[in-house]
């Protein structure tokens, strides 16, 4: 098999194409939003400036160049590792992202761990006896997770903890895991819990369906007939084989979390990557939004590739082949 036609080469090429598409889309969309960085910075004071002043500012913010020049200088910069510069923060987008990306990744990892801890046992509980009270309970929790918006749950939780117990770790200055692990975990706990409540639901449902499905398969019936103890059957055979859809679903949710935690980041004042984009859009800092969205998209693509690899590792059928 030649390198050019190898499936991995093709996956990587297609990933590049996808990222280029995201780049074009975000570039065009940003330019279509009314207002520019000068208006975002100066508001109505822009009207009090002379044309020469405006021209000087356009040059300062790099808005004087043609759209093509802006696009290609951005893309060209990316290949040299230059993601652009934020005049607001006076930092490069790489530095900004180096601060914000770990926050979001930590949040996403914690969320996924929590959702798996909630979702998988609940799904198995539900599946252990179909249409029983346990199943009803599991389904109800899953339904609540799917139906309660995270901003409602988040605001309520934060307001309640602050008012009742004067407990609000997120009101303190944000610290990283390295600076102060104990406070960091407290600051991450509530937002991760809120997100996990929502994400546990699809994981629970996937687990339930997968377990029910696997259990009806021949080899499980055979194992049961052979007298494999039920507990061992449950974990070794059933869960082992139900892993594939669970991993797929987990990967999908993780990818989603990279850009989808904005609302929770906003409520709990977490300086994550979603908020970086949101502030960038408000300030019309094109380079910040473009490069950050691209970083998120890259994360999504990588997670998908990784899910694929894991999938190949655990799927007995793929392994056997």
């Amino acid at each position: 098999m030649s390198v050019l036609t190898h499936p991995i080469t093709r996956r990587v090429a297609s990933a590049f194409g996808t990222l280029l598409g995201v780049a074009v889309l975000v570039f065009i969309m940003l330019r279509a939003i009314p207002g520019d960085q000068i208006i975002a910075q100066f508001g109505i004071e822009t009207g009090d400036m002379t044309p020469a002043q405006i021209a000087a500012l356009r040059e300062y913010y790099g808005l004087d160049k043609s759209l093509f020049a802006q696009f290609f200088s951005w893309i060209g910069g990316l290949f040299q590792g230059n993601l652009g510069f934020s005049a607001r923060a006076h930092l490069s987008v790489s530095e900004l992202s180096a601060n914000s990306l770990p926050v979001t990744i930590e949040l996403a990892v914690l969320t996924i761990v929590l959702s798996l801890l909630i979702g998988v046992p609940l799904g198995m509980l539900s599946a252990s006896k179909r249409d029983s009270i346990r199943d009803g309970f599991g389904q109800l929790v899953g339904l609540a997770g799917l139906s309660i918006p995270s901003f409602l749950l988040g605001s309520a939780l934060l307001g309640w903890a602050s008012a009742k117990f004067s407990y609000n770790p997120n009101g303190k200055a944000f610290v990283t895991l390295l600076e102060n692990p104990w406070l960091n975990i407290q600051q991450m706990a509530m937002p991760a819990l809120v997100l996990a409540f929502g994400i546990a639901a699809p994981i629970m449902r996937t687990t339930r369906t997968a377990v029910l499905e696997v259990r009806s398969l021949d080899f499980v019936r055979t194992a049961k007939a052979k007298g494999v103890p039920p507990r061992r059957l449950q974990y070794r055979h059933v869960l082992g084989n139900a892993l594939v859809p669970i991993v797929t679903m987990t990967g999908l949710q993780f990818g989603y979390l990279l850009g989808g935690a904005i609302v929770v980041e906003q409520i709990f004042s977490l300086p994550g990557i979603g908020r970086q984009v949101l502030i960038g859009i408000e300030q019309k800092e094109y380079a910040v939004v473009q490069s950050t969205v691209l970083v998120i998209a890259l994360g999504f693509v990588l997670v998908n590739l990784l899910t694929d690899v894991v999938y190949r590792l655990i799927d007995p059928r793929v392994r056997a082949a």
Binding site: S14, G17, T18, L19, G21, V22, L25, V26, M29, L30, A32, I33, P34, Y256, L258, G259, G260, I262, V263, G274, V277, L278, I281, V293, I296, A297, F300, V301
Partner: peptide, 22 residues
């Protein structure tokens, strides 16, 4: 498929948010 991949990789809430601002 290309367009689908692009739209999938674009963070959904940010996509809606940007479109809603245009």
């Amino acid at each position: 498929s290309g367009v689908t991949n692009v739209l999938f990789a674009f963070p959904p809430l940010l996509l809606a948010l940007s479109l809603a601002s245009v």
